[in-house]
Computed example of a mutant assay.
Amino acid sequence: MAEAIVELRGANIRQGNRVILEKVDLRIAPGEFVYLVGKTGAGKSSLLKTIYAALPLGGGTGTVAGMALQQLNRRTIPRLRRQLGIIFQDYNLLMDRNVEDNLRFVLAATGWRKGAAQESRIDEVLTAVGLPDRRRSMPHALSGGEQQRIAFARALLNQPKLLIADEVTGNLDPETSREMLSLMRGLATRHGAAILFATHDYSLLQQFQARVVQCADGRVENSHLDV
């Protein structure tokens, strides 16, 4: 069996002193697509934050991209995040910089030197998300769907082993949501990245079938929901 991209065993997910989820067992294989569902406040975002080390592991054991969560520190957390692509509902684009400079900022922050390699990688990810002509556009000039595609392109820059999507279709209309999910699944499959896709839109689960993980009543259940 291939080494898991995410492996949590008996993990407790905490916010401060409060346990949000307890005894979480979760395994995500390389290239696997997994939905993460649950009501608002059920712990989805806290679980994601623990996986990308914005919250410390509150108990049990966990590895992400081969790195033990309980052993991470300020020096090693950036090494973990270079292996992840994270996409948020509100896009988190730098509104005072054009698309190219948004992408260049991430490349510089993750150790890419200026030059042809940066330029080539920017071209590759913009082409991959279908927006090669938006390189000089400012974020405010883009539609919501285009901004989300740029956020996805940014997440692809370092060829991540795992893409984490936190309610990324929440601000999009249904058709654009389906297009975005289809794009993510297709590109992740071609690049061999796993995807953990948090959503409250159960209609997406009906159209694109995959394993479903549910947060409810302080627990995480691995299942295929009857939706």
Rank of each mutant, 00 (worst) to 15 (best):
L93R: 11
L93D: 07
L94Y: 10
M95I: 07
M95N: 13
M95C: 05
M95V: 07
D96K: 13
D96L: 10
D96T: 15
D96F: 09
R97N: 13
R97S: 14
N98R: 11
N98S: 11
N98G: 13
N98I: 10
V99S: 01
V99Q: 03
E100V: 09
E100T: 07
E100M: 13
E100H: 14
D101V: 09
D101K: 15
D101Q: 15
N102H: 08
N102D: 11
N102K: 10
N102V: 12
L103Y: 01
L103I: 06
L103H: 02
L103P: 02
L103R: 01
R104F: 04
R104A: 14
R104C: 07
R104P: 09
R104T: 13
F105L: 11
F105T: 15
F105E: 11
F105N: 06
F105A: 12
V106G: 02
V106T: 14
V106D: 00
V106N: 02
L107F: 03
L107A: 03
L107H: 00
L107I: 02
L107E: 01
L107S: 00
L107D: 01
L107C: 02
L107Q: 05
A108Y: 06
A108R: 15
A109T: 09
A109Y: 04
A109M: 13
A109H: 10
A109L: 12
A109N: 14
A109S: 14
A109C: 07
T110R: 09
T110S: 05
T110E: 05
T110I: 01
G111T: 10
G111N: 11
G111V: 11
G111C: 08
G111P: 08
W112N: 05
W112K: 09
R113Y: 06
R113E: 14
R113F: 05
R113A: 15
R113C: 05
K114W: 04
K114M: 11
A116I: 03
A117R: 11
A117C: 02
A117V: 12
A117E: 13
Q118R: 12
Q118M: 15
Q118W: 02
E119W: 00
E119D: 14
E119H: 09
E119F: 03
S120Q: 10
S120H: 05
S120V: 03
R121I: 08
R121E: 06
I122H: 01
I122A: 05
E124Q: 09
E124F: 01
E124M: 03
E124R: 04
V125L: 01
V125N: 00
